[in-house]
Computed example of a mutant assay.
Amino acid sequence: MGRGKIAIKRIENTSNRQVTFSKRRGGLLKKAHELAVLTDARIGLIVFSASGKLYQYQSPGSSMEEIIDRFLIAENIQFENRNIHQQLHCEITKIRHETDRLQLNLKQITGEDLTGLTVNDLNQLEEQLEFSVGKVRTRKNELLNQQLENLHRKVMFEHQVMMEQQHEIEEQKEREIREMGFLEPFGQILDDSRSLLHLGPEIHPFQLQPIQPNLQEAELHGHRRQLW
């Protein structure tokens, strides 16, 4: 019983498709090698799998670059490839000239190479430098103002934090005074102590009288003086 024909179409099952690729790839490389050895043919084979992996074969004694060059010559593609090289050369030359011009302008701005400039060129260069300096100063002033504003905000924030800490300390002291047994706030106690120092006569009705001299002792002293 012979083998059935396999329909040439994409295999939907992923595993079967991978197995088929591995088997057919091996057979293709084997046939290419047999053909190159038996007939002395120059063969270059390039295969990319569905995942992007590269498989290649070139005839013994040959390289893939040599085979590709022969293919380009045989298909008359070398002419188009030469045009591509010319375009690339033109682009490289253009970029090189532009780079040289920019380097020369940079040297002129820094004052290193001014020999080829006329008076008008020097005036334009001076105006350009003054304009650039003005932009630099404007940017510098913006940064300085921003730093001053940030510093002012920092000082205000630190002052606010200090005031809050001081307020917390005062509240803590007042709580400690209350916990020690005082019923009234410490400030009220000080006010009461100050009010006691200003009490009038109605609070203290007893007043000290000046000491009067003893009249009898004064008369006795007078008689003694007369007797003597």
Rank of each mutant, 00 (worst) to 15 (best):
Q124W: 03
Q103V: 03
E171M: 04
I211K: 04
L144S: 07
I67C: 01
N120S: 10
F186S: 15
M156D: 05
D40E: 12
H198P: 01
T14M: 10
V155T: 13
K154F: 01
Q188E: 12
I11N: 06
P210V: 11
N214G: 00
R70A: 13
G116V: 07
R42T: 11
G4V: 14
L38G: 04
Q165G: 13
I77M: 14
R153D: 05
I95S: 13
G61K: 05
R224H: 08
I203T: 13
K30D: 10
V19R: 14
T118E: 06
I189M: 12
G52N: 09
F182L: 08
S49D: 15
I77R: 11
K30L: 03
E149W: 01
G116W: 01
L35Q: 11
N105I: 09
L102G: 02
E130W: 02
H85D: 01
I8W: 00
V47E: 07
R42E: 09
E158I: 08
F48H: 13
L190Y: 04
F186C: 08
I169V: 15
E170N: 06
V136Y: 02
I92H: 10
V47S: 06
T115A: 14
Q172G: 10
G181K: 11
L125N: 05
I68S: 05
Q18F: 00
K53C: 02
N214E: 11
D191N: 14
P185D: 15
E158T: 13
I211G: 03
K173R: 05
L125S: 03
M180W: 02
D121T: 09
L129F: 04
F157W: 01
M64R: 00
L72T: 06
E126R: 06
T138R: 03
F48D: 12
E142H: 01
L54I: 14
K94H: 03
L220F: 01
P201V: 09
K9H: 08
L199G: 01
L148M: 03
E219Q: 04
L215R: 03
S193V: 11
K53L: 08
F48V: 07
F182N: 09
E170M: 11
E164H: 11
L102Q: 06
Q146A: 15
N141G: 05
H221Q: 14
Q216E: 13
R10C: 04
K5N: 13
F79G: 06
Y55T: 12
T14L: 10
E158C: 07
H97N: 10
S193N: 12
E127R: 08
L45K: 06
E179V: 13
R10E: 12
I84K: 09
V37C: 15
D113Q: 04
G44L: 08
E158L: 14
F186M: 08
N123D: 15
F157H: 05
E127L: 10
I43K: 03
G116Y: 01
N81K: 15
T14K: 14
Q172M: 02
T118W: 02
Q146D: 14
D113T: 07
Q216P: 00
H152P: 00
T39D: 14
N13S: 07
N214R: 00
N214F: 00
A7Q: 15
P213G: 13
Q124R: 09
Q147E: 10
V19Q: 10
Q216T: 13
G222H: 15
K53H: 02
L35S: 09
E202V: 06
G61A: 10
H152A: 10
L35N: 09
L54V: 13
S63M: 05
Q58H: 15
S51I: 07
P60M: 09
Q18M: 06
A32R: 01
K154R: 11
E80K: 07
L215P: 00
